[in-house]
Amino acid sequence: MTKEEIKALNKELENASPEDILKRVLPVFNPKIALSSSLGAEDQVLTDMLIKIDPNARIFTLDTGRLFRETYDLIDRTSRKYKNQIEVFFPDHQKIQEMVNRKGINLFYESVENRKECCHWRKIEPLQRAFSTLDAWICGLRASQAVTRQNIDVIEWDENNQLVKINPLAQWTEEQVWEYIHAHKVPYNVLHDKGFPSIGCLPCTRAIEPGEDVRAGRWWWENPDTKECGLHKR
């Protein structure tokens, strides 16, 4: 798909519902399209929508080795409910071992550079392996999630990964996400009920205080404009 075709598709779908976006793009890219799920609320909504359209849709996640127990439980519950085995990609153990022995087990607290190196080996490298068989990926980004995501489109060219990137929930609010979850009985991470709106690795995620931004609990020791792991580099 050319950049002009992507631009035209984005224009066509900019006001479409998430379900209609998925119905439109799946036939275009099948079988080289997948949902990259972090098991967050948005990705659980997309999982529910996607499976209702195509029960055999491909869904994968990344196990960084430092996730919450509740996240592992959700992977299992989701796979069982939808009868669709979520693929799990793991980091290269040799790269992780070398990094930890060189910089320490909690290197990410020391500097943004260290944190991004940790994210690279635990998330970016396995993600690139997952992407190697794809032409397009679906993700749960919303424009209102963070200052780093305000200008996302429904359909984008992911220059960093050389793929088409599809954001069906780009214009949804957090309220719409939770309305869908409750209306459709979508399984979600129990940590959301304990003040964790955004959930990543255990050492890098905390509950937020009332009035804080939904991403405030991710890498809370950093400035807001650095709070991306590199998966959504633009």
Rank of each mutant, 00 (worst) to 15 (best):
T2W: 11
E5T: 05
I6E: 03
I6H: 03
N10Y: 04
N10F: 02
K11V: 00
E12G: 03
E14D: 13
E14P: 00
A16Y: 13
S17D: 12
P18H: 06
P18S: 06
P18A: 08
E19L: 12
E19W: 04
R24E: 15
V25T: 05
V25E: 11
L26D: 07
P27E: 11
V28S: 01
A34I: 01
S36E: 14
S37A: 05
S38N: 12
E42M: 10
E42W: 11
D43C: 08
V45H: 07
T47S: 11
D48C: 01
M49Q: 11
I53C: 11
P55D: 11
P55C: 04
A57C: 14
F60M: 07
L62E: 13
L62S: 08
G65V: 12
G65E: 07
F68M: 02
F68S: 00
R69K: 10
T71A: 01
T71L: 04
Y72R: 05
I75K: 13
D76Q: 15
R77F: 07
R77C: 01
R77M: 09
T78E: 00
S79V: 07
S79P: 00
R80E: 15
Y82G: 02
Y82C: 04
K83W: 06
F90T: 06
D92I: 02
H93Q: 12
I96C: 10
E98R: 15
M99A: 06
N101S: 13
R102Y: 06
K103E: 13
G104C: 13
L107Y: 12
F108T: 00
F108Y: 14
E110Y: 14
V112Y: 14
E113F: 07
E113I: 06
R115P: 11
K116G: 00
W121D: 12
R122F: 05
K123C: 03
R129S: 04
L134V: 03
W137I: 01
I138C: 10
R142Q: 14
A143D: 11
Q145P: 05
Q145E: 15
T148Y: 11
R149G: 00
Q150V: 09
N151C: 01
D153W: 14
V154S: 04
I155M: 14
W157C: 00
W157R: 02
E159T: 05
V164D: 09
K165F: 02
P168D: 13
Q171S: 08
E175T: 02
Q176Y: 04
E179C: 02
Y180A: 02
Y180V: 01
I181L: 10
I181P: 06
K185W: 06
V186D: 01
Y188D: 00
V190I: 13
D193A: 08
K194M: 06
G195Y: 15
G195D: 08
I199D: 10
C201N: 09
C201H: 02
L202I: 07
P203N: 09
R206L: 01
P210Q: 08
E212D: 13
V214H: 07
R215H: 03
E222M: 12
N223Y: 07
D225N: 13
K227W: 00
K233M: 08
